[in-house]
Design a protein around this nucleic acid. Structure first.
Lengths: 143, 143
DNA sequence: GTAGCTGCAAATTCTTTGCAGTTGT
DNA sequence: ACAACTGCAAAGAATTTGCAGCTAC
């Protein structure tokens, strides 16, 4: 009988995600959680994330070319912006309309995932400390 | 001095991608390439894909929750449609406009990545042989 | 002939699992 | 109490790298 417990590790992981607000990698979650609960292990992070994800409290964010990150759910529908300068992920509100129209006839579109690539205000509009553009981050360069 | 050679393995991998047309995983590429060149190894596939990617002949396609796949470049700008029924990836022409407007002021959008999730004509519009919706494939269910 | 390419196996990295001990409830 | 949860270490899976032999040019 599943009766989910409220352990300090579980709470710590949730708190880390709530405090940071932005998508974090399992590694980052572990590091931050360590300061809340000493000795917490990687396995617990993965297990807890899977558990929280299953409960719908957490969702994964996948940026092409990047390791998966996790964030709390419950926010409005949004997408992500990946800064090529600092490699941080930001949230973007709203989403384009008419996506269903892109698919050919006969295809039913149930959901979508969108990621924007570029530079955040702090990293400046042009290539400075940028890492060389990865082949994954191609796509059209317009917009 | 790099002078790139035209080996049969390299050719086989390129041919496989050209024949299939759709994004393939390294594993699939290996399997198909084996029928062209016996004894080809996984390492060669990975090395060659990286090489071809560096040359701009190939690009990777990353579907959230899925292992990376590869396809030939040179097609028009397009996005992908992932069928939750058969797990195949289709290409979608065109792309939404006004994406740059989604990012907050100060952010410069250089590129974008879009994936549509749903069902292809063959798998029918509703859940039949569908796998349970993965937590990654969430996003809004409208459109 | 020679540098680049290949296959194999070992090495990495990331994630999952087995288990005995610990801890909410 | 007792099952769920945890940490650690071993197990897996995916990708990369070292190296000696092979091969296109």
């Amino acid at each position: 009988m599943q009766h989910r417990r409220n352990t300090k590790q579980r709470q710590a992981i949730y708190d880390v995600l709530a405090e940071k607000g932005t998508p974090l990698s399992p590694r980052e979650i572990l590091d931050h959680a360590q300061s809340h609960v000493g000795g917490i292990g990687m396995a617990t992070v993965y297990r807890t994330l899977k558990m929280l994800t299953g409960e719908g409290l957490v969702q994964s964010v996948e940026i092409p070319g990047e390791a998966p990150r996790f964030e709390l759910t419950g926010k409005d529908h949004h997408h992500h912006f990946y800064c090529r300068g600092c490699e941080r992920v930001f949230e973007v509100e709203g989403c384009p309309t008419g996506l269903a129209a892109l698919a050919p006839a006969g295809f039913s579109v149930e959901a979508h995932e969108l990621v924007l690539f570029g530079r955040c205000p702090e990293c400046g509009p042009a290539g400075k400390s940028a890492k060389p553009a990865d082949s994954v981050h191609r796509c059209c360069s317009r917009e």
